[in-house]
């Protein structure tokens, strides 16, 4: 019986974030999003609906704040009192940041949201009891609760539409929490297929649905450990480190030729998503 299991493994189980004693190996999934490239077109969000069986909740439920878009595109206006936003709007794709020290994980009473050895914030639907504590404690508010049983809700998936559903992922019933998984089903398929070949995944072999569709390649996804990966190189070039709560850009004088930052990193969730600042021309 597993009391011994509990006593022996507990601390290890809860240390799967990049403290030095348990480094991720061979994978640490991460992203970078170039806000200068992102046009706010929403294609990524639609791709996520298509890939991850997200329900379209309809107008009424949307009005009640019950939308299920794992990827939402936020649109910000300049804060000053100018009459027109004459430097445009600012778009920000926001989804689960796959925090390394995820505030959502520690509070889940049943351990339904966990850290995986490859650095993902996992969500175990079967285990979730729907306490919503994880969402309460997520600083980014990117967790989406199944307020209704969408699979059986009228016009969400009429019989014809069920044929589109991705069989690689379940449909979530009522009372379950969900959120962006970095398209875990794609990662797992990829990992298993290369395991047979006795190697690790190469950069680009697994793409998330949002990355794949993005017309401006604003989203880069990959293995942060793999020095060949674009995401690794971008993080490195921007001198953004995972287990740090203040990056070079903000720390050093003259560090401002860098664009990489992470949102709310001062709270130390150690997000796995790096954003790169939008650029605006100074000459016009």
């Amino acid at each position: 019986m597993s009391v011994s299991n509990l006593l022996e493994n507990w601390s290890e189980f809860r240390h799967k974030h990049p403290v030095e004693d348990v480094p991720h190996d061979p994978y640490k999934w991460a992203m970078s999003i170039d806000l200068d490239a992102c046009t706010g077109c929403n294609a990524c969000s639609v791709a996520c609906y298509a890939e991850n069986n997200l329900p379209v909740v309809g107008k009424e439920k949307y009005a009640h704040g019950q939308a299920m878009h794992w990827m939402r595109i936020e649109r910000y206006w300049p804060e000053d009192d100018r009459e027109f936003p004459d430097q445009g709007a600012q778009f920000l794709p926001m989804m689960c940041q796959q925090c390394e020290a995820a505030p959502c994980e520690t509070v889940c009473p049943v351990g339904a949201t966990n850290h995986t050895p490859d650095g993902l914030n996992s969500q175990v639907y079967n285990r979730c009891i729907g306490s919503r504590y994880c969402s309460a404690n997520c600083p980014f508010k990117v967790r989406y609760f199944n307020w209704y049983d969408y699979p059986t809700t009228e016009n969400v998936w009429p019989a014809e539409m069920t044929q589109q559903l991705n069989p690689d992922i379940t449909l979530r019933g009522k009372g379950v929490m969900e959120k962006c998984t970095f398209c875990i089903q794609r990662i797992r398929v990829g990992q298993r297929s290369v395991k047979n070949e006795g190697r690790v995944l190469r950069d680009g072999e697994v793409q998330t649905a949002c990355q794949q569709v993005c017309p401006t390649n604003a989203i880069t996804f990959g293995n942060l450990i793999d020095t060949e990966s674009k995401v690794h190189q971008q993080w490195k070039a921007q001198r953004v480190e995972l287990a740090v709560d203040e990056q070079t850009k903000d720390k050093e004088e003259g560090g401002s030729d860098l664009r990489g930052y992470r949102i709310l990193e001062e709270l130390r969730p150690y997000p796995s998503v790096m954003y790169m600042e939008r650029v605006r021309e100074s000459a016009i």
Partner: peptide, 25 residues
Amino acid sequence: LGRVWQIYYALPYPNERGVWPNFQS
């Protein structure tokens, strides 16, 4: 609870799978 029928998951009862609730919560 969203899934009250699974409420016992929150109790640290011994079980075959060795799945324990999260003592940090």
